[in-house]
Structure formats: C-alpha cells, structure tokens
C-alpha cells in the first residue's frame, strides 16, 4: 500500500506542476501588457508602470512563475488589485462559504443516491424501479441553476421557509449559516444524485447476480442484510469512482449556484474579478479550483485501493499515470 501511495503522490505532484504551468501560461497569453489590460484603455502610462512594478511584471516569465508557485506554497497568493488586500485573505473568507456548500451538496448526493439506487436495484423491473429511472433521467437533464430558481420560487417566495439569497455569515450562528446553504446545496446535489443513483443501481444489480449473494440468501439472511452487508461494499467501487469525478461537477456547479443565491463564495469572487480584470485573483482562484479537483482525485484513488486491494497492484503495474 505504501508503494501505491508514493506512486499516487508522484502523480499528484506532476499534475499540480503541469496544471500551474497551464494556468500561468494562459494568463501570460493576454495580448499586450497585463497591467494595461487591468487598468483599461484610459490609464496613464505612469499608472500602468506603477502597476507593472506592483505586480512584479518586469521580471522574466520563468522568474515570475517561480515566485507565483513558491508564493502559493507559502500561502502568499499576491495582492488583489481591486480589493487592495492579500488574495489569500479574500480566498479564505470566500472558502468559508464555498467549502461548506460543496460538502453539504456532496453529503446530500450520497444520502439521496445510495438508498434510491439500492432500492431501484432490489425492485428491478418493477414500478418503483421505473419511477426511479424516469426521475433520474429527468434529474440529469435539469440545469442546476434553473432548479435553484424554481426552489427559490417555491420555498423562499411562496412558502417563505428560506431566504431567497444572501448569506448571514457564520457569526450569526451555525444554524443560520447552514439554513442559507440548504437550497443551494439541494440544487447542486440533484443532478449529481441522479447520476450516482443510476450508477449505484447498475452496480448493485451486477452484485446481486453474484453467487455469494445467492449463498447469503440461502443461509437465511434477510433481504436488508443481504443488501447492506454483502451488496453495498462490493457495489461501492464504481460508486466511489463516479463520486470522485462528481467533485469537479460540484465545484463548477457551485460557482454558478453561488451567483443564483448571491452567496459570497469563490464563484462570486471569480466573476467579480473577471469583470474588474483582476487577473491575480482569477489566476489564484482557478488554480485553487483545479488543485482541489486533483487532490480529491488523489484521495479517490486511495479510497478505492482501500476498498478493493486488487486495484493497488493492477494500477501500480500500469505506471504512474495509468
């Protein structure tokens, strides 16, 4: 397992370096002077020169890349041009909304998908199964931001159970903060739960056809015991794989959903930064988003190697990037 972990960590490190190079180079591709780009057409040459100095744009690109990367490692993301505060402070404050939102959506996705998928598999080709398949097909087709708007219409405007948007801050109490994230998390979770429920169903159907399940039934275990004790763990490998992939959907989805609910998270921050041409913020937030996807992929790899020890060896044999 140790060799496997080292192997995966090498993959992780290479991925992060290449991702940072891609992001840095893309921002470097801006035609002309980034400082002039950020200040707009009417900027005085002196102001542009001062900003170039402030942003450290006068150095060689390799030197700037090195400064940017080493800065990020030490928690120094640079200084936001528009907010005039360190980007790290901005990002930390916004993570306080985006991270709980993504985690809540992930928990909801699992909480909905696993029981629904298992139920559909155990009632295969019966009305309950058809209902689940139909609903999940619809759930995959619904844009999450549209679903978010419908949730606002029903639960915030008509029933007035939740607020239509905004975030009171964690200072107002855990309950108030979590309540503000309920509708956004549901909107984010719906399409992902639909996909995951279908994966769970098909994985479970395969597992239920195995001989050891027949043996478990033959020795008198109840259907519930068969499903939970013997079916679930074996069906989890494809489920965990998809769940890991879904994390990037949740991150991308959260960027949009934050805009629907006017939540002060990373998504709002990056769009404001694009409008204000604050490239330092855009660069750092994008790197953070990509970093989190790569990190989650790493942990997913470790998780399913833990679930199925055979994978440790088979994946290891295929080399670092397989």
């Amino acid at each position: 397992m140790l060799t496997f972990i080292i192997n995966r960590m090498m993959t992780l490190a290479i991925s992060l370096v290449v991702a940072s190079l891609v992001i840095f180079t893309t921002i470097e591709l801006i035609p002309g002077d980034p400082a002039a780009f950020m200040l707009g057409l009417n900027a005085e040459p002196e102001t542009v020169a001062a900003l170039r100095q402030e942003l450290g744009l006068n150095g060689h690109p390799v030197e700037r890349y090195w400064r940017w990367v080493t800065g990020m490692i030490t928690g120094d993301f640079g200084r936001s041009y528009t907010y005039q505060v360190p980007v790290a402070d901005l990002v930390m404050a916004r993570l306080g909304v985006s991270l709980p939102l993504t985690v809540m959506a992930l928990i909801l996705t699992i909480a909905i998908a696993l029981p629904v998928g298992m139920m559909a598999a155990s009632k295969r080709n019966k009305p309950a199964d058809w209902g689940v398949m139909g609903m999940t097909q619809l759930g995959i087709a619904i844009p999450n931001f549209w679903f978010a708007m419908i949730l606002v219409l029903v639960f915030a405007i008509q029933l007035q159970w939740f607020s239509a948007g905004g975030f009171p801050g964690w200072d107002e109490g855990l309950g108030a903060g979590l309540k503000a994230l309920v509708l956004p998390a549901i909107a984010l979770a719906l399409p992902q739960a639909s996909i995951l429920a279908r994966v769970m169903r098909s994985a479970m159907i395969d597992v239920l056809a195995q001989d050891y399940i027949r043996t478990a039934r033959a020795k008198g275990l109840s259907e519930r015991q068969v499903l939970l004790r013997h079916g679930l763990r074996n069906a989890l490998i494809p489920v965990v794989t998809i769940l890991g992939l879904q994390f990037s959907f949740l991150i991308a989805g959260a960027i949009i959903i934050e805009n629907v609910f006017f939540l002060p998270g990373l998504g709002r921050l990056v769009f404001q930064a694009i409008t204000q041409r604050d490239l330092i913020v855009v660069e750092s937030v994008v790197m953070l988003l990509v970093f989190s996807v790569i990190i989650v992929t790493f942990f997913v790899d470790l998780t399913y190697a833990w679930i199925d020890p055979r994978l440790r060896h088979s994946r290891l044999n295929k080399g670092v990037w397989s």
């Binding site: 991925s15 992001i23 991308a252 855009v282």
Partner: peptide, 26 residues
Amino acid sequence: DDVIMRGNDLAFAFPALVIAILITAI
C-alpha cells in the same frame, strides 16, 4: 501514448466552466 494519457488525466481537472473563466479573463 503516455503523454496523451497524461494530458487527458490533467484535462479532466479543468471543468468547462473553469476553462471558460480562463478564456473569458483573456
């Protein structure tokens, strides 16, 4: 083959929206 597959793995870390954010920023 190795380079293509490595590139593929890496590209999956960039959701369409993130690519769009980068392109739009430029």
